[in-house]
């Protein structure tokens, strides 16, 4: 840089010029740092503020209006319930977590290879794809009782319902991801004499990864719903079962506590999928692209 400063203005030496420029640079950079720090604080601070304000309104609103706790308990009561039923929630939360993970895992293990088969085998795709899409018109929640009839009250029906709900976005996103590769990439592979297998695993599948993960993020939230529905329909454990019994005994604070526990499980699992995505696609720029893509 400093060697090109021959043309710099008038009397100041190249060194002085450099110092002056460095000062400006430092000021601009400091401004950026300040702005990002402020933005980070705001990103965390505002939501907390909103939650606190709503919590306070809720707390004092319900008391002032004399709303009975079995209709809408104030947050303090919910917190008490959370503390009192800590062990119960943890045990049942674990049961639900296992169902979700098994259901989600199954939907990945079945969904991704199924999408590959759909892609690689057009005849199979033509016969199965319409069935797959129309099967989505069947409300899976309505099938849940049938699963209880077939598979009893144990773990299996819950896992299957979670799987059934979660696997569709994985299949669709994987198939779309495999399909929507840049045409030139494939032409290039052919001109390189790359085998069909190598083209698939070295180019097509990695290109599809961001879209596949987009599907997985939808799937994990759906798997939570599936597991809870399974527990609603029949079972003796899990957060869904806790909700059901709390409802039966009009223990509304526990109902809220259960919903909070479920939310925590859901968010934790979502973050886990995001972590897996981070490991699989290390470059933030590429992940961002994908995120822009799956909202479209």
């Amino acid at each position: 840089m400093s060697t090109t400063n021959q043309h710099a203005s008038g009397e100041e030496s190249p060194d002085e010029h450099e110092t002056a420029l460095a000062a400006v640079e430092a000021r601009v950079q400091a401004g950026l740092r300040k702005r990002t720090a402020r933005a980070r604080r705001a990103a965390l601070g505002y939501p907390i503020l909103v939650v606190v304000v709503i919590g306070l309104l809720w707390e004092y609103g319900t008391r002032a209006a004399g709303v009975p706790p079995f209709i809408l308990p104030p947050p303090s009561l919910i917190a008490q319930s959370l503390a009192a039923h800590w062990g119960l929630l943890l045990n049942n939360g674990w049961a639900t977590l296992v169902e979700i993970l098994l259901g989600f895992g199954l939907s990945v293990v079945v969904g991704v290879p199924l999408a590959m088969a759909l892609f690689l085998w057009p005849a199979f795709s033509r016969s199965v794809y319409p069935l797959l899409v129309s099967s989505q018109a069947v409300p899976k929640v309505a099938v849940a009782p049938l699963f209880v009839v077939w598979f009893g009250f144990g773990l299996l029906p819950k896992v299957l319902i979670a799987f059934l709900i979660a696997f569709f976005p994985i299949v669709i996103n994987t198939a779309v991801g495999l399909e929507s590769i840049e045409r030139e990439k494939i032409l290039l592979a052919r001109s390189m004499g790359l085998s069909a297998l190598d083209t698939f695993f070295k180019i097509r599948l990695p290109s599809a990864l961001p879209t596949v993960f987009g599907g997985m993020k939808i799937a994990i939230t759906l798997a939570v719903v599936g597991a809870v529905v399974g527990e609603f329909v029949g079972g003796e454990e899990g957060l869904g079962y806790v909700l059901l019994t709390a409802n039966g005994s009009m223990d509304t604070p526990l109902l809220f506590a259960g919903v909070i526990a479920l939310t925590v499980v859901g968010v934790a699992l979502y973050l886990l999928v995001e972590l897996a995505e981070r490991l699989a696609i290390p470059h933030a720029a590429l992940r961002q692209q994908a995120r822009g893509g799956d909202t479209a």
Partner: peptide, 14 residues
């Protein structure tokens, strides 16, 4: 037995 260059670079992002 050739090399091809397209208008877009067609690089593998990863």
């Amino acid at each position: 037995d050739l090399g091809i260059v397209f208008q877009s670079p067609v690089l593998l992002e990863w």
